[in-house]
Design a protein around this nucleic acid. Sequence first.
DNA 1: TATTGTTATACTCTATAACTATA
DNA 2: TATAGTTATAGAGTATAACAATA
Lengths: 144, 144
Amino acid sequence: MADDESTLQQQVWDFVYAYDAAYDRAAQAVGLSAAQACLLGQLTMGERSMGELAVELLCDPSNVTQLVARLEARGLVTRVPDPADRRVKQVSITPAGRREHRAVRRAFDFPDDRLGRLDEGEQLQLSSLLAKLLDRPGQAAAGG
Amino acid sequence: MADDESTLQQQVWDFVYAYDAAYDRAAQAVGLSAAQACLLGQLTMGERSMGELAVELLCDPSNVTQLVARLEARGLVTRVPDPADRRVKQVSITPAGRREHRAVRRAFDFPDDRLGRLDEGEQLQLSSLLAKLLDRPGQAAAGG
DNA sequence: TATTGTTATACTCTATAACTATA
DNA sequence: TATAGTTATAGAGTATAACAATA
């Protein structure tokens, strides 16, 4: 009786658990931590300052310093002072960094393995539900 | 054009990101790490050996030793040898541990805040989709 | 004086390898 | 000999506080 009422919450927990585990495996298969892969992922969408990365990664700037330092030492990102405000450093992903990140994406089998089980209609359904959960327009939100 | 095809995957990413962040905040609000809260959560469903915890938490047994040692030092779990096989240690949550874990659940606002946006029919829909993604019978899977 | 990023430091998470106790 | 758990150790993630450079 106490089981039924928690089923959806438990399913969501299990889903997130599986997703996180798959991402960790993918990053580690490429020799990166999840945090490093995540940072590289942000940079694939364009350069960012250290502070912007801290906001996006939900962590302290001093942590970003460490993460970027390790990635820079491996030649996966670069860090150059912003000419407009030399306190700021703009971080960019290098070609090698892009290759590593693509390798993570390839190793990250969760989307294909799991989302691939849904047919097109189900995927639209899921997209619509997620849009509500995220306060964003999903691909299936128009017209309900 | 390249945007549309990745929308569902991006939505799932954003959803998991928000979920993880909310859980981290909830645990830290109670003075626990996410890993510690997670371990306590397993124990709310019954005692487990160190090895079983390692399997469930997807980590090395030596890591479980450390996590349990810290929780034990704070009086949140106990660790007693199994009479049937004295190599094995059974870990149990204490009343104080249950209180701490309930505090995490209360602070974990994601389920109420987000899943609460869906009406009953939408929740059943989501449950059914998650059941397919997880290879488990969801609460709405029967008769599908 | 305020802001950006770094350094120093400390704690936790995590794994590998060597070890102890038990089976 | 094999298994469960621990210890020693090391690397990575993370935050706080003090600091440097720049604005």
